[in-house]
Amino acid sequence: MRSRYLILFIVFFSIKVNSQIIEEKKNFRAADSLLKENSFSVHRDNYFLTGVPINTDITRNTADVKYQVSFKLRLTSKPLFGSFFPYLLYTQKAFWDIYASSKPFSEINFNPGAAIVRPFYLKGGRLTYAAISFEHESNGRDSIYSRTWNMLAFSLKSQVSPRWTVGIRGWVPLVDKDDNPGLTQYVGYGEASASYLIQPGRWSADVLFRKGSGLINYGSLQTQLNWRPYRNENYYVTLQWFVGYTESLIDYKEHKSMIRLGFTIKPENMGIF
């Protein structure tokens, strides 16, 4: 009888230890998805695109170049409380009227921030990032041309299948209403994103939808088709279409529809948001 209980105890203990080992390995793999990147890495897409409007006349003043530089810095190689990793973030988006006679920059938007990111697995082994960030966005100008707001944002991004990655993000906007009347209506309170690998290593598609506070009048949609000419190089030929509001802060009340073509450098792995 004692030997039977001893065998049962050994079996129960081994099952428990094995389950703990599996869970520890799973948690390690989730954290390792961030640690295998360099501490300084690509945050959002870095791109250089040129294009024309499709909802108004095409002229030297309506065609432009849009480019974005975006990077992140992981501050520690070990997680902090709650298995969160701290990050510093920076994104800069510029609109360059390169076809106009004097080739001015019509707008530059600066978006620094800080975030804490928690990697984990959902049921079925789906890698997921939960993030809390505080960000500032402005165009660095003063007087009537000043556009600025802050946000406290919460996001989830998950690789739901080998080809699909989806994300959802909500924020609490903090806006100076005197300088930016009605800006909250246009930037809204959240966005949803999706990426699909049409042909892994070659073709992919991205969608980003931002909902304004109006029922149907505000918000934006940005879609991209990306082609990777060389599998060993991390750059893409990108066709991008933007329609809606707040593509730039200076013209946040202006509805735009632009189609652009150019080059993109993407994060090596699934972006944190």
Rank of each mutant, 00 (worst) to 15 (best):
Ser33His: 11
Ser33Gly: 04
Leu34Val: 11
Leu34Tyr: 07
Leu34Phe: 01
Leu35Lys: 03
Leu35Val: 01
Leu35Thr: 11
Lys36Gly: 04
Glu37His: 14
Glu37Pro: 00
Glu37Ile: 01
Asn38Trp: 04
Asn38Thr: 10
Asn38Asp: 13
Asn38Gly: 14
Ser39Tyr: 12
Ser39His: 09
Ser39Gly: 10
Ser41Asn: 04
Ser41Val: 08
Ser41Phe: 00
Val42His: 14
Val42Leu: 01
Val42Asp: 06
His43Val: 02
His43Gln: 06
Asp45Glu: 13
Asp45Phe: 12
Asp45Met: 07
Asn46Lys: 09
Asn46Gln: 13
Asn46Phe: 05
Asn46Cys: 12
Asn46Ala: 10
Tyr47Arg: 03
Tyr47Asn: 08
Phe48Val: 07
Phe48Pro: 00
Phe48Glu: 02
Gly51Met: 04
Gly51Phe: 10
Pro53Ile: 01
Ile54Ser: 15
Asn55Ala: 12
Asn55Val: 09
Thr56His: 14
Thr56Asn: 14
Thr56Arg: 15
Thr56Ile: 13
Thr56Asp: 13
Asp57Cys: 04
Asp57Trp: 07
Asp57Leu: 06
Ile58Pro: 05
Ile58Trp: 09
Ile58Val: 14
Thr59Arg: 02
Arg60Tyr: 02
Asn61Gly: 05
Asn61Lys: 07
Thr62Asn: 00
Thr62Asp: 13
Thr62Lys: 01
Thr62Ser: 15
Asp64Trp: 01
Asp64His: 14
Asp64Ser: 12
Val65Gly: 09
Val65Thr: 11
Val65Cys: 01
Val65Leu: 14
Val65Asn: 08
Lys66Glu: 14
Lys66Tyr: 05
Lys66Gln: 08
Tyr67Lys: 05
Tyr67Trp: 13
Gln68Gly: 09
Gln68Ala: 09
Gln68Trp: 05
Val69Phe: 13
Ser70His: 15
Ser70Thr: 13
Ser70Ala: 14
Ser70Arg: 12
Phe71Trp: 11
Lys72Leu: 13
Lys72Ile: 05
Lys72Arg: 13
Leu73Gly: 13
Arg74Tyr: 09
Arg74Phe: 01
Leu75Arg: 15
Thr76Gly: 06
Thr76Gln: 06
Ser77Arg: 06
Lys78Pro: 00
Leu80Arg: 13
Leu80Ser: 02
Leu80Cys: 06
Phe81Asp: 11
Gly82Asp: 04
Gly82Ser: 06
Ser83Val: 06
Ser83Lys: 08
Phe84Asp: 12
Phe84Gly: 10
Phe85Tyr: 15
Phe85Gly: 03
Phe85Pro: 00
Pro86Gly: 06
Pro86Tyr: 09
Pro86Trp: 00
Tyr87Val: 11
Tyr87Lys: 02
Leu88Tyr: 03
Leu88Ala: 00
Leu89Cys: 08
Leu89Lys: 00
Tyr90Cys: 04
Tyr90Glu: 10
Thr91Phe: 01
Thr91Gly: 12
Thr91Glu: 11
Thr91Met: 11
Thr91Ile: 03
Gln92Asn: 11
Gln92Met: 14
Lys93Asn: 06
Lys93Thr: 07
Lys93Ile: 08
Lys93Tyr: 03
Lys93Ala: 02
Lys93Gly: 08
Ala94Gln: 02
Ala94Met: 04
Phe95Met: 09
Phe95Lys: 10
Phe95Pro: 00
Phe95Cys: 07
Trp96Pro: 04
Trp96Ala: 00
Trp96Asp: 02
Trp96His: 14
Asp97Gly: 07
Tyr99Arg: 02
Tyr99Thr: 00
Tyr99Ser: 06
Tyr99Met: 09
Ala100Gln: 12
Ala100Gly: 05
Ala100Thr: 09
Ser101Trp: 00
Ser101Thr: 13
Ser101Met: 05
Ser102Phe: 10
Ser102Gln: 12
